[in-house]
Nucleic acid binder design. Structure first.
Lengths: 276, 276
DNA sequence: TCAGGCTCTTTCATTTCTGAAAGTCCGGCT
DNA sequence: AGCCGGACTTTCAGAAATGAAAGAGCCTGA
């Protein structure tokens, strides 16, 4: 026995509420004959009499009341739909990036996005690599061109790294613990200053705060160091400099909200704000 | 702009879940061409692209994800429907009666109802008169034949009243407070034993408990007195004897659940249990 | 490079659904 | 009594939706 058509249930609720075919027809824009037939079909499919048909209209039977309770959730769906139609919910574009870029985007996007933009950003936290190929995110900001040919990539500005500290007199380095996120900057630090590491933090955000309080030096992207009252100690570390790539699924990038988000991000990342 | 067909949204969810037309077609029993057309129509009606159509199938766009969240409630409705189809919810027949009869029915109906009965009783508490004409209840048990011609009524057994007390030595009467429910038995008590009333209770159920503890005499239907270790003090009060009428809406009584409940109640009330 | 397999879309005859109008029923009103 | 009005159902021609089959595009593996 097949389940009934959800639209029949919508009409069923309308008839139950209206108490008759005529007013239900007016309320739903469906003609009375159609309502009559579809209610009859619904009863046949469920094998229950749902209405008492009297000269005064349709009245629910006990079984009809029971069904009406069961499908009352449709009312809520209809209400949400109606709301959606009148003031459409903005689609959310899922963006994933590394720690510093995520923070930068989260902070800047509120103002950088056009006020009438037809999309809303959703930042997907991702130390672990979120897979755009599997559609876990719409847009990714990565430090290299993706291998997969079905990815669309756009190069934006270069990211430069340097050593930062509260002031030039501070010595010693703050690193991530061994075995934690294996980033190029972490590897560089351990390769060149392993012996100078004075402490570790479980998260680079904490490391930066520790550096800001004078506990040691950290390796940061230049734009992230500039944000936090830290001074750049040495020159830009050329070995770590890399371009940022704006990556999206090849099929997905023509979705208007995604496209708008891509353009907005390209503008934002190309902006002088990010340059050292 | 009209709202989309709810059944289209059901198919939309199926396609979104399946990630493609083929498997969605298998899951829903609808053919792939139909799904293709209806998804296209849905997009046209909403004026949004809901899917990315690639050679790998359908993938939701940002707008599609947003819609899927909005209509997720349909899943719950479908689940309830499926449950209803497999193990049908029994329709509830709303029964209204006076205090003592309600209690009697509530206690007896569990066993009196056939084990495979296709209905479940719902006792509608009603000191105030619940209106069967307005379909607030399906079946009423009343103490007289209804005036309205569209009511169907079936006479059952006569109800007899008598004075009860814990033992014959108890004197004094327990009544309802002045101005409380104006029942024939209450009026009779005040008319004949006004001066012997020793106390009042806000509810006859309390009055009966008070009588059972020996505080005074009460006027009760004979079947209600017998239930509670009370002894009948005087003869049946002929002035209060009346028949019970099983009342239902004329149109409603052919609804199978209502009809079954009517038959069951007629049997129950005709049963010797109710006789003094 | 090409066949094979997968997916979606189009075509088209068929089925189903729809709505206006006419028909039926029933209670209320004069 | 008999007409009126409201409410549902049936009729019927036209409109819309459906599914099988064929078409088109794309990746995969040989």
């Amino acid at each position: 026995m097949k389940e009934p058509d959800l639209d029949d249930l919508r009409l069923f609720l309308a008839v139950a509420d209206a108490g008759g075919l005529g007013s239900a027809a007016r309320a739903t824009g469906t003609s009375a004959p159609t309502l009559s037939r579809r209610m009859a079909a619904l009863e046949r499919r469920l094998n229950e009499r749902l209405f008492e048909r009297g000269p005064r209209g349709y009245a629910l039977t006990a079984a009809g009341r029971s069904l009406a309770e069961d499908v009352a959730g449709l009312r809520q769906v209809q209400a949400r739909l109606a709301r959606r139609m009148s003031s459409p919910t903005l689609p959310r574009v899922r963006i994933t990036a590394g720690l510093w870029t995520s923070r930068f985007i989260a902070r800047q996007l509120g103002t950088a996005r056009a006020p009438d933009a037809a999309w809303v950003p959703e930042i997907v936290a991702s130390n672990a690599t979120v897979d755009i190929a599997r559609r876990e995110a719409d847009i990714g900001i990565r430090n290299r061109r993706p291998d997969q040919p079905w990815m669309a990539a756009r190069r934006t500005i270069p990211i430069r790294y340097a050593v930062f500290a509260k002031n030039p007199d501070i010595t010693g380095y703050i690193a991530l613990p061994r075995g934690a996120a294996d980033t190029p900057s972490g590897r560089w630090l351990r390769a060149h200053h392993e012996s100078e590491i004075v402490t570790t933090a479980s998260d680079m955000a904490f490391a930066r705060e520790m550096a800001a309080s004078g506990l040691g030096r950290v390796v940061l992207p230049t734009f992230a160091g500039a944000e936090c009252d830290l001074v750049q100690i040495g020159p830009v570390i050329d070995a770590l400099t890399h371009d940022e790539w704006l990556v999206s699924h090849h099929d997905g990038r023509h979705d208007p909200p995604v496209r708008a988000a891509l353009d907005c991000l390209a503008g934002l990342l190309g902006d002088a704000t990010l340059r050292p």
